[in-house]
Design a protein around this nucleic acid. Structure first.
Length: 670
RNA sequence: GGCGAGAUAGCUCAGCUGGCUAGAGCACACGGUUCAUACCCGUGGUGUCGAGGGUUCAAGUCCCCCUCUCGCUACCA
């Protein structure tokens, strides 16, 4: 037995990011779970006891608003979306062991316990930023960052903030985290991300993090102060431990004790900061070990500009699977797996890959091999031990070397999560097999009675090569691998038997009705289908928008309330109508416009961060609301002597405030 | 503005500590073949290795500078 079968290599706990349930995810979001799935399936075949957790992140203001728009409760809303997301995982054949939802009762209870514990032990404290908060800059500063005891940005006094909120003492653990990151170079992958985190956050000094909200309700309440809900990231990140039975009071499950720390957190590059700074610090505060590795993968993007339903260019996994089949979609996203750079996905690109790699190289190989076996030997594949000529011997040995040497290469690629490269290695087997057919010319051998045994060996070698290739392919394309094994009337090999050639049972009869694994696709049909789906999307988006306009009055925004002020406080502010007489972009800035504003008989220069919403040309001539007596400040090297007032929506769109009737420049607003 | 990454064949990209006529896959063209899903096998690129300087016997590979793209971050009075 010792030379056969699986052997235990230890546990392997992998998590993906949990998907935010604000709407149906597109293929660029689903890509991550497929990647995770291929790694997990691979690890299982390597002999690891794998636990694969994914799920949904279901709290937050955005969801509260979406539910309100839809006229249902937040819970009803997330139940629907979470169901969709889980359905997509299943559709993509993702072999997760646990699908956690942050609305699961046991998760919610643990988050409350964790919050309480961190509060009790002093890591979380209630709203005291004395001397460390610069209100105008809306920034927190650590002692070390202050310049002469003042805000390093604007040089003004820093002072306590008035809103009540809970904060996490990040700085307390910063040094420990820096040390950990430096001593564990594999912790943040790829390494370029490590430098970003160090240079931008850790080395300048960590700010304390606000970990509660009072501006909305859809979250986990702080159980000892229920005006507050727990910050969504503290809520979401803890899923990695609550999902496997962590208990903040010391009664964690056996499963937790076995699985934690996680071996790999697989996440998108946009949330690396939360996983490599905040999450490790939360864990340190709880006294738990840190995950072994956080891998921030790049994105799979839809080309053709920013995607949106109104443009009809959103690519959804279910549309793709219905058209191409689950394994073609898996193959595409895994083969395109962006490692350092973002990758692209379009219907046309998937069709190209499917035709060249799946239909031509793989599908056709299996099909032609089975056809020949049927044609020449009634489907019976047997190695009859033919005498080999020296040339045949060389040819066969070369084939075997390629086939049996691939396993080690694949393992090597997978050790660093280079899934795309691993797939390329596996397809090297199929390419080599196709070449072998050309070298041995079975149709020529078939014409010579005396070459019958040689022909049998050739076909046996091909089948053996295909079985080994299919076995390696299983983690990435499980359905296809099984189909191949079935057509060859055998089973897929364990990973510890992939360096041996000749295990296919001689004399096995293959199927006499080979099924086409991947049909070649006609590009015209592919593009027609894509267009059809795009048109449906646009129609849907239009209908949705029309519906939204009707219920527009429910589309409101709540922001964090500020402390009450006296009339005297208000009277200190001087507002006037200003006419913009000239405007230009501030050269060294991405967001700033510099305007000359006529206010009465004087002209002020005002800098505003509205370049994304207004062009300099359209600014000119507008009469707008100006806060006039604000202390001048320098922005991007340009002096600004006031403030143009804007309204801002939830997406950050800005609209200038204009008098409702014609007013002269300088008119007081009071 | 700060920090960082990148600019190599039509497309996507490899090219480590400098060394022979700069590579792979896809696409394209031609040739071969016919078992197979018009498939497979073979052959084919005169690519200013972003621009310009420099170091060296020798630079895509090191140094300087410039241009452009991208990422993280700051600014948004």
């Amino acid at each position: 037995m010792e030379n056969k079968g699986k052997y235990y290599r230890g546990k392997y706990y992998l998590t993906t990011a949990i998907a935010y349930t604000s709407g149906k995810p597109h293929i660029g979001n689903n890509y991550e779970v497929v990647l995770a799935d291929s790694i997990c399936r691979f690890k299982r075949k390597e002999g690891y006891e794998v636990f694969f957790q994914t799920g949904t992140d279901e709290h937050g203001q955005k969801i509260e608003l979406k539910a309100q728009e839809a006229g249902i409760t937040p819970k009803e809303f997330v139940d629907g979306v979470a169901g969709t997301i889980r359905g997509l995982c299943d559709l993509l054949n993702v072999s997760y062991d646990k699908f956690i939802r942050t609305t699961d009762k046991d998760h919610e209870r643990q988050v409350q316990k964790i919050f309480k514990r961190l509060y009790d032990q002093g890591d979380i404290y209630k709203g005291a930023y004395e001397g460390l908060y610069c209100t105008p800059c809306e920034s927190f500063w650590t002692e070390s960052q202050l310049v002469d005891g003042k805000c390093p940005d604007c040089g003004r006094e820093v002072k306590p903030a008035k809103e009540e909120a809970y904060f996490f003492r990040m700085s307390k653990y910063a040094d420990k985290l820096i040390k950990h990151i430096n001593e564990h170079p594999e912790f943040i992958q790829p390494v370029s991300r490590k430098n970003e985190m160090m240079n931008n956050f850790l080395l300048p000094g960590l700010q304390d993090l606000c970990v509660s909200r009072t501006s909305f309700k859809w979250g986990i309440p702080v159980d000892f102060d229920d005006k507050h809900v727990v910050y969504v990231w503290l809520d979401a990140l803890t899923n990695y431990i609550t999902g496997i039975g962590y208990d903040a009071e010391g009664n964690s499950s056996e499963q937790y004790k076995k699985l934690w720390p996680a071996d790999l957190h697989l996440i998108g590059k946009d949330i690396i900061r939360f996983h490599t700074i905040y999450w490790p610090i939360f864990l340190m505060a709880l006294g738990e070990p840190l995950p072994k590795q956080v891998f921030g993968h790049p994105w799979l993007l839809m080309s053709g500009g920013k995607m949106s339903k109104s443009k009809g260019n959103v690519v959804y996994a279910d549309d793709l699977v219905n058209f191409f089949g689950v394994d073609a979609v898996r193959y595409y996203v895994l083969h395109e797996m962006p490692y350092d750079n973002d990758g692209n996905v379009t219907w046309e690109l998937i069709a190209e890959r499917t035709n060249s790699d799946l239909a031509n190289t793989l599908g056709n190989l299996v099909n032609r091999t089975i056809s020949m076996s049927n044609k020449y030997f009634s489907g019976v594949v047997a190695d009859k031990g033919a005498q080999l000529t020296p040339e045949d011997s060389v040819t066969d040995e070369d084939l075997k070397k390629t086939v049996t040497g691939t396993y080690a290469k694949v393992v090597d690629k997978m050790a660093t999560h280079r899934v795309a490269d691993a797939l390329t290695e596996i397809f090297g087997i199929f390419k080599r097999c196709n070449k072998y057919i050309d070298e041995t010319e079975p149709w020529v051998l078939a014409k010579d009675e005396t070459k019958s045994d040689r022909l049998a060996t050739v076909l046996y070698n091909l089948v053996e090569g295909i079985v080994i290739g299919a076995s390696l392919l299983e983690p990435y394309m499980p359905e296809t691998a099984q189909k191949i094994a079935k057509q060859l009337n055998t089973s897929l090999r364990d990973f510890d038997r992939l360096e041996e050639f000749g295990l296919y049972e001689s004399g096995t009869k293959v199927t006499d009705t080979p099924e086409i694994l991947f049909a070649r696709l006609d590009m015209k049909e592919v593009l027609a289908k894509e267009e059809e789906i795009g048109a449906a999307q646009m129609a849907f988006a239009q209908a949705e928008q029309a519906g939204e306009e009707e219920t527009n009055d429910t589309n409101v925004i709540d922001i964090e309330p500020k402390a009450e002020i006296s009339y005297d406080d208000f009277a200190k502010l001087q507002f006037q109508v200003g006419e913009i007489i000239a405007c230009e972009a501030v050269p060294k800035s991405k967001k700033l416009l510099c305007s000359k504003v006529k206010i009465g008989s004087q002209v002020k220069q005002i800098v505003s961060g509205i370049k994304a919403h207004y062009s300099p040309e359209e600014m000119v001539g507008k009469k707008v609301m100006v806060l006039v007596n604000l202390k001048p400040a320098t922005l991007a090297g340009v002096v600004s002597e006031g403030m143009l007032l804007c309204a801002e929506d939830a997406e950050g769109n800005l609209a200038l405030m204009k008098p409702e009737k014609e007013m002269p420049a300088g008119a007081e607003i009071c």
